[in-house]
């Protein structure tokens, strides 16, 4: 099985600061990590390789520093890692990101399976997976929470759609976007990390995809959407009424009245 995993490097959301006045994200305020959902994608790929053989390739489009995300992917089991980086790729929205990722996928090989995260915690769009599938003209299954069986010829997954859970069996090639429920990504061992330090991150620039995409189709130029401005929403200020340890009884009594007034108590 030839498997490609799409990985994005994202700021650590817990730490990142937002400048409400300037409407800006202070990217320096936090470190970076691999998008959490992409770790589930990678874990799924590594498990399938362990079962069926083959190889796992990790691919990211991003700035030079995204190399560290690929090193981590290698430590977690990717056999080969590729970084798409070029100033022409900068400023990409989901369409031009997907256009470049799919062009690179075509170039890098004949993948049976491509796995992406459900969404990225900074972009939050959940669009890059399905759009990459569209550019490759292949099927995709989104919101995959379980892979129930996988063989050389077909794969069966559970996906939640239409407010129900569906089991779908596909043949290859196929793209999956996966949720946190799929698995628990293993932690790389010390040995894995040492090995990964030596792995070479192979770089791809615009040259690598120029047969497939014009300059005007990538990066900012190839992006039909742009962010006009950013607003840091006012924190919903609630006037919090606090009851301390010794006021529990009062709290329960007060709430009974409040809830009755709101017509929430059963008649």
């Amino acid at each position: 099985m030839q498997i490609l995993v799409l990985i994005k490097q994202v700021p650590e959301m817990e730490k990142v600061q937002f400048d409400a006045e300037k409407g800006r994200i202070d990217r320096k305020s936090a470190g970076v990590e691999v998008n959490p959902f992409d770790l589930n994608a990678l874990e799924a790929a590594v498990k399938i390789r362990e079962k069926l053989g083959g190889s796992v390739t990790a691919l990211t489009m991003g700035p030079k520093r995204a190399e560290s995300a690929l090193k981590e992917a290698a430590a977690r089991g990717a056999d080969r890692v590729f970084l798409l980086t070029d100033k022409n790729f900068a400023g990409a929205d989901t369409i031009s990101t997907s256009a470049v990722l799919s062009a690179a996928a075509r170039k890098l090989g004949d993948f049976d399976l491509i796995i992406a995260g459900e969404m990225s915690v900074d972009g939050d769009t959940a669009q890059v997976g399905p759009q990459t599938a569209q550019f490759l003209e292949i099927n995709h299954a989104a919101y995959v929470s379980e892979i129930t069986s996988v063989s050389e010829n077909e794969i069966t997954v559970n996906t939640s759609l239409w407010e129900a859970n569906y089991s779908k069996t596909f043949n290859y090639p196929l793209l999956l976007t996966v949720t946190k429920d799929l698995n628990s990504p293993r932690l790389p061992s010390f040995k894995d990390k040492m090995k990964a330090r030596k792995i070479e991150v192979e770089k791809l620039d615009y040259e690598a995809v120029k047969n497939q995409l014009q300059v005007k189709e990538v990066g900012f130029k190839g992006s039909p959407t742009w962010v006009e401005n950013i607003v840091v929403p006012q924190k919903i200020e609630r006037e919090t009424k606090v009851y301390n340890k010794n006021e529990t009884e009062k709290a329960i009594a007060d709430l009974k009245e409040i809830l009755a007034a709101k017509n929430l108590m059963e008649a």
């Binding site: 989901t94 369409i95 769009t125 959940a126 669009q127 569209q134 550019f135 995709h140 919101y143 039909p224």
Partner: peptide, 22 residues
């Protein structure tokens, strides 16, 4: 919905038009 968010991106990519999620 899950289905909408899974369907819309492909439609947009096929039409090469912009799509804003959610």
């Amino acid at each position: 919905t899950h289905f909408g968010r899974s369907l819309a991106p492909g439609l947009a990519a096929a039409m090469k038009t912009g799509l804003t999620a959610d």
